[in-house]
Computed example of a mutant assay.
Amino acid sequence: MFANAQQKAIDHPDTFEAPTPEELAQVRKGSYVKVCAEPERFWVLVERVIDGKVQGVINNDLVFSDKHGLVCDQRISFELDNIYQIYDEAD
């Protein structure tokens, strides 16, 4: 269901960036990460990361729920490779 951001960066290196393995290794409880369920990207508040699998809660209202079936405050699971962006409060 979720797009693979790492593969997209490989397929489109001149126009698309994804987090590095080092950045992904820093994702933990309390991190905010952006994932994509076509055609929508959205933020998830991470609750746990275990062996490359992430569990979290969708943290914004979604526009295309009728297409992907996801809604705000829903708990979801995905892979680290699905992460498009990591929010860092220092940014």
Rank of each mutant, 00 (worst) to 15 (best):
K34L: 05
V49K: 12
V49F: 13
E17V: 01
V54L: 09
I76D: 04
C36E: 14
E79Y: 07
Y84P: 01
P39Q: 09
D66T: 02
T15V: 10
I86Q: 03
I50D: 13
C36F: 00
F16E: 05
Y87W: 14
E38I: 01
D51I: 04
N59H: 15
G69C: 07
N60Y: 02
E38T: 05
I86C: 04
V71P: 01
P39L: 10
V49E: 12
D91N: 14
G56F: 12
G52R: 13
E89M: 14
T15L: 08
K67Q: 13
E23L: 05
R48D: 15
N59I: 07
I10A: 10
A18H: 09
F42V: 01
S77T: 13
E79G: 03
F64T: 01
A37P: 08
A18K: 07
P13T: 10
D88F: 07
G30N: 06
E79R: 13
H68N: 08
D91V: 06
A90E: 11
M1S: 10
I86L: 12
P21K: 02
K53H: 13
T20L: 06
A18I: 07
V35K: 07
Q74S: 02
I50M: 08
Y32V: 06
I83S: 08
C72P: 00
A3L: 14
G69F: 06
C36T: 05
V33A: 09
V71I: 06
A90W: 11
G56E: 12
Y87T: 02
V49I: 12
E89A: 14
P39C: 06
Q85Y: 12
E40A: 01
D11G: 04
A37C: 11
S31C: 07
L62G: 05
V35M: 10
D81M: 00
V54I: 11
N4V: 07
T20C: 09
A5S: 14
C36I: 01
E38A: 04
S77Y: 04
E40I: 02
V57I: 15
S77H: 09
V49G: 13
C36P: 01
V44P: 11
A5E: 09
V35D: 07
V57P: 03
I50S: 11
Q26V: 06
V49A: 10
G69W: 09
Q6V: 14
E79A: 11
V27Q: 05
H68G: 03
E22V: 02
A9Q: 10
F78M: 05
R75P: 00
L45E: 14
A3K: 08
D51E: 15
D81G: 01
F78I: 00
Y84H: 15
D11S: 10
L24S: 04
M1A: 15
Q26D: 09
D61S: 12
D11R: 13
T20G: 05
S77V: 02
N60L: 03
